[in-house]
């Protein structure tokens, strides 16, 4: 689209990293602070949106060769199958549970199925938003 927006591109590269980091932070902190799967996912995808705005579609796609439809599909499947996991333990659909592990580096870490569920959500959101963006901007 635009070749000469060098400043925009440079700024974008930096901004994208900031946004990405922020997105991951939001995603992880969601359980106790503002944030969560949706917001994290949306933020992450807005980083990609920025990339697409700054660079043209082809070069971004070359850099990150992903089929985002499939990303979205996998996200949805993760969310659903996390929900169905509880069926294996004879619990109701979408029963979340959490456990604490002592990991070498992180120390005592809580791992909740919620996190898995939310990661599915986030993945789904990212996949969808980028699919939409790419579809329309490619066509234009």
């Amino acid at each position: 689209m635009r070749e000469n927006d060098l400043i925009l591109q440079t700024v974008s590269k930096v901004a994208v990293f900031i946004i990405l980091t922020f997105g991951v932070y939001l995603f992880l902190s969601g359980h106790h602070n503002p944030g969560g799967g949706f917001i994290g996912g949306l933020t992450l995808s807005s980083a990609f949106v920025l990339l697409y705005l700054a660079f043209d579609v082809e070069s971004v796609n070359a850099g990150i060769p992903l089929n985002y439809k499939m990303v979205a599909a996998i996200g949805v499947l993760i969310a659903i199958f996390t929900g169905m996991g509880s069926l294996l333990f004879g619990r109701a659909f979408l029963s979340q549970s959490s456990a604490y592990f002592n990991l070498p580096v992180f120390g005592k870490t809580g791992f909740a199925t919620v996190t898995l569920f939310e990661s599915g959500i986030a993945l789904g959101v990212v996949g969808v938003v980028i699919t939409i963006m790419i579809s329309i901007s490619e066509d234009v």
Partner: peptide, 27 residues
């Protein structure tokens, strides 16, 4: 977030499905 991820996780799951349909739909 707890409501979204746990108490009413089902809504959230369907919401992603909605979003998913829209995304593939746009495509």
């Amino acid at each position: 977030n707890t409501i979204l991820g746990d108490f009413r996780a089902f809504d959230t799951m369907l919401e992603v499905v909605v979003l998913f349909i829209a995304g593939i739909g746009v495509y």
